[in-house]
């Protein structure tokens, strides 16, 4: 077989990470729209909230793969973000549906700033990890052979 399981993990991670990058770009754009009055916060929250759990789950899935394949370094890098996600979801406002964003509090300047900053930081993180995974997917098979 051409690929070992770690290599397979990296390739899957690479693909999923691309999705995560799109998610965070969407996130950044969405909050920018809020800030510039283009969108109604209710609509915006309705479109953002369904994406929160999928993003977290994708990220978690990548790390499960790393765990199973024993890629400790990549796992270690991602653990802080997993913890952050857990914390974030645990302390979300009271709401009946899935998601994080409450249209009544999202327009608060502090919340808006935090969310936007979070979007940029995550985007940077996903971009960096994209190259890491790319590197991993190239290196790992080589070391096996």
């Amino acid at each position: 077989m051409a690929f070992s399981f770690p290599a397979f993990s990296y390739i899957i991670a690479l693909i999923l990470d691309a999705f995560l990058i799109f998610f965070s770009i969407f996130h950044v754009i969405a909050f920018d729209e809020l800030k510039t009055d283009y969108k109604n916060p209710i609509d915006q929250c309705n479109s953002l909230n369904p994406l929160v759990l999928p993003e977290y789950l994708l990220h978690l899935f990548i790390n499960v793969l790393f765990l199973l394949s024993g890629e400790w370094f990549s796992l270690l890098i991602n653990i802080p973000l997993i913890l952050y996600h857990l914390h974030r979801y645990y302390t979300r406002p009271v709401m009946s549906g899935p998601g994080l964003y409450d249209p009544t509090s999202i327009m608060n300047a502090d919340v808006l700033t935090v969310c936007q900053r979070e979007g940029w930081i995550k985007l940077a993180f996903y971009l960096l990890s994209f190259f890491l995974y790319l590197y991993g997917s190239v290196i790992t098979p080589a070391t096996l052979e």
């Binding site: 809020l34 800030k35 009055d37 109604n40 916060p41 249209p103 009544t104 327009m107 300047a109």
Partner: peptide
């Protein structure tokens, strides 16, 4: 109220 945008 409900805040509909940054100043509305």
């Amino acid at each position: 109220f409900f805040v509909r945008s940054t100043d509305l």
